[in-house]
Simulated scan of single mutants.
Amino acid sequence: MQVFYATQFVLPLPTGHRFPMAKYQLLRDRLPAEVEGIQLRQAEPASIGELALAHQPAYIQAICTGAIAAPAMREIGFPWSEAMVDRARRSVGATIAAARVALREGVAANIAGGTHHASSDKGSGFCVFNDAAVAARLMQAERGRAPAPPGPGGGEPLRVVVIDLDVHQGNGTAAIFRGDDSVFTLSMHGARNFPFRKQAGDLDVDLPDGCGDGEYLQALESALARLERRFAPGLVIYLAGADPHEGDRLGRLELSFGGLQARDRLVFDWAWQRRVPLALCMAGGYGVRIEDTVQVQVNTFAIASEYWCRWQNLRP
């Protein structure tokens, strides 16, 4: 299974900054040793034109040149630097690459990504550019340039669902795709968690503080059934946040390691049963113990690899 990374492009952060940048390298170090069949690939940066599929040119220019206003950078939560810009572009590039490969091979992944608080004209909550939004629009554009495949629906635009199971609502993604019938946004998140002013997506599921495995999995099964009735995707972009874990500093939910593995299996099996390719990205994770966050993510990649193998058995 192809996995794209940009861990060597480290974002310099002040001492004591609460974003756990080290988790990406820890995950990259563990995956080849613990998950069979992982093929690591360095991500290339998203181009300015690719970013413009989901973001306003003035915002892209302000970020890339450092002309972004101080209050806007405070909302993002990172200090501006050229390294920040490069890493943000590569995080988007990794999801683009994972989506392309997933459409060929069934499953592929980004070690980072899931920057769902970025909207078209601003960043927020440690999110500079919205990787899922850019990747969805670019895959649609590339499908439009390709010859139409034979059979029913061959000339229709690629329909994409973003299944966002980070503990925080994907407000930026919802705002970008509002009114776009070709992209469906499903977000399952803590009702009382950031962002405190939510943006209405196509399907939002609010969860109470302290929600545990049973309640969460029941809500997810119901949400996937509702998605099934409303939308038939040709690509899933799955944000598998580690922050619903009971050991997360910012999550306020109480899912166990086993509960999160069951969550991932529900999503991967939903896509597999319908033979819909899936691109995986990791989204948030702020464990009191960083090892717990990384373990949640290793578990997700192990399940992804299982389903990638199923897809390969379909290939001639």
Rank of each mutant, 00 (worst) to 15 (best):
T15S: 13
R18I: 13
Q25K: 13
P32S: 10
E44W: 00
P45H: 00
Q61T: 02
G66D: 00
P71R: 03
A72P: 00
P79L: 10
E82L: 14
A88H: 03
A88E: 02
R90M: 04
R90E: 03
R90S: 01
S91L: 14
S91Q: 13
G93R: 02
I96T: 02
A98W: 11
R100P: 11
E105Q: 14
D131I: 10
A132F: 03
A136V: 05
R137T: 01
L138M: 08
A141V: 06
G151E: 08
P152Q: 10
P152D: 10
G153I: 09
P157S: 10
I163F: 04
L165R: 12
N171V: 01
G172H: 04
A175V: 00
I176W: 02
I176P: 00
R192D: 15
F194L: 14
P195H: 13
G201V: 06
D209W: 07
G212P: 04
E215H: 11
E215M: 11
L220F: 07
L224V: 10
A225T: 03
A225K: 11
L227D: 08
R230I: 04
R230K: 14
P233Y: 08
G234M: 06
L250W: 10
L253E: 08
R263Y: 08
D264V: 04
R265M: 14
D269G: 07
W272C: 08
A279Q: 02
L280W: 04
V288G: 14
R289A: 15
R289M: 09
E291V: 02
Y307F: 15
W311A: 13
W311E: 10
Q312C: 12
Q312T: 14
R315N: 12
